[in-house]
Design a binder for these strands. Structure first.
Length: 417
RNA sequence: GGAGAGGUGGCCGAGCGGCUGAAGGCACUCGCCUGCUAAGCGAGUAUGGGGCUAAACCUCCAUCGAGGGUUCGAAUCCCUCCCUCUCCGCCA
């Protein structure tokens, strides 16, 4: 949610910022400005009427108490009441339209977000393996440890059974990530994955990505596509004392995505599936600390990738590809030998005050109260990390060497031996 | 799933349909006082939105789980929903 006061004070700056996402986006601001004007024209009229009615009600009360007749005053009140109701309805209607115009507007991009249309490669790290043989893809390498046939029969396309050693790798990855994050001050959380609409609205996934979200048939509940949704709601409607910030959480949960509109894309293996597990970072920080926190989260993502010996590059995502809530986003893309290119593995966003405004999460500094800033980032997207580990650790005989660090968390040293 | 109780300010808790934005207590802040890690005294301490402002102050409106309704007037009455607790049932 954008700040109405800012829009009012400096509409040109807001319009210019939105225009970086596209001219069409910036044009949507005009409706908001118009409705805000209507609203503020109406409010003084309504409130003056209410003040008069409140005063008249007191007069009636006093008359009643002293036993006087108030029939005339009561009749007048009844009439004023009808007018009040009318104006109230009018205001409610305007506010509803204002909300409908304002809520879908995306966050203002950070000035350092990549201008687009292309993402901006910031750096390349790690060694791309020079394989003296034709690389296999993750599905070949996993063999029976990934069973998509039975998953497809049972649940449909884009589902998988993970079996045997790969399960141990998954658990090792999760444990590795959670302990690392804890060391960085993130509190581990296993959140609910079924949520009400408000949580999705509050995080900006609604109205924006509805076609991506599973909805239950018999209950007003949705399956989250990321634990970000649940972590953001942890301080829903709170005023947090500044001394408590930053608040950092590491969520571990399954994630569910419909992948509608992705038909035909990444259909082989578990790169793009409807269900996967993920360890996610989420931070609540002071407004002027979010830029630094964003770099911090990115650094943790890179630390994890380095320790897993994965070759990757960091990209600054183009403003035209930013989700609604992000002001700036970095992706870490991992090298996949079978595809001979970098693919998205982790992602971190600074959502500034966009989600906080929607979820009504504020910080109190001295006497001042203002929306705080929230950020999120992937620590480990388990499925894709497994893909990366398999492909980059593969040997000519089809076995896979896993990074040493995972052994400490229960993963085997070699897969498929 | 069945039966019942309840949701009031940071917390506890009182609230007859009008004088309650809300008693009282706790906590916190500031001041006073007291020579001994505390007590006493005084004052203050919600949020959002308008207006006026450079800002503060001030002022008005709204808010007693949420949304509707009754009424001249609702924290108080009615309806729907949400949540919490207790008992029963079921269950990993």
């Amino acid at each position: 949610m954008l700040d109405l006061k800012l829009i009012r004070q400096d509409p040109d700056a807001v319009r210019a910022a939105l225009a970086r996402r596209g001219d069409e986006v910036a044009r949507r601001l005009d409706a908001v400005i118009g409705l805000d004007g209507e609203r503020r024209a109406l409010i003084p009229r309504l409130e003056e009427l209410r003040a008069q009615r409140n005063e008249a009600a007191d007069t009636i009360a006093r008359a009643k108490r002293s036993g006087e007749d108030a029939t005339g005053a009561i009749a007048a009140q009844r009439e004023a009441g009808a007018r009040e109701k009318e104006l109230s309805r009018e205001l409610a209607e305007i506010e509803e339209r204002l909300e409908a115009a304002l809520a879908p507007l995306p966050n203002l991009p950070d000035s350092t977000a990549a201008p687009g249309p292309e993402d901006e490669v910031l750096r390349v790290a790690g060694d791309v393996p020079k394989l003296p043989f034709k690389p296999r893809d993750h599905l070949d390498l996993a063999g029976s440890m990934i069973d998509m046939e039975h998953a497809a029969t049972m649940s449909g396309a884009r589902f998988a059974y993970l079996k045997g050693d790969l399960v141990m790798v998954e658990l090792a990855l999760v444990r590795f990530a959670l302990e690392k994050l804890r060391g960085h001050g993130f509190e581990p959380v296993v959140p609910p994955v079924l949520v009400r609409e408000r949580a999705l609205y509050g995080t900006g996934f609604l109205p924006d990505t509805e076609q991506q979200i599973y909805r239950l048939a018999d209950d007003e509940l949705f399956l989250v596509g990321t634990s970000e949704v649940a972590l953001a709601s942890l301080h829903d409607d709170e005023i947090v004392a500044v001394e408590r910030l930053p608040l950092r959480y590491a969520g571990f949960s399954p994630c569910f995505r419909r992948e509608a509109g992705a038909a035909g894309k990444d259909t082989r293996g578990i790169f793009r599936v409807h269900q996967f597990e993920k360890v996610e970072m989420f931070s609540f920080v002071e407004p002027d600390a979010s830029t630094e926190e964003h770099e911090r989260i990115l650094a943790i993502e890179e630390e994890i990738l380095s320790e897993l010996d994965l070759p990757y590059r960091v990209v600054n995502i183009s403003v035209t590809d930013l989700g609604n809530s992000a002001a700036k986003k970095y992706d870490c893309e991992v090298w996949l030998p079978s595809q001979e290119r970098y693919r998205e593995l982790t992602s971190c966003s600074n959502t500034t005050d966009y989600q906080a405004r929607r979820l009504n999460i504020r910080v109190r500094r001295e006497k001042k109260i203002a929306p705080l800033h929230t950020l999120n980032g992937t620590a480990v997207a388990v499925g894709r990390t497994i893909i990366a580990l398999l492909e980059n650790g593969q040997r000519e005989d089809g076995t896979v060497a896993l990074p040493d660090i995972l052994a400490a968390y229960g993963a085997p040293a070699v897969l498929g031996a």
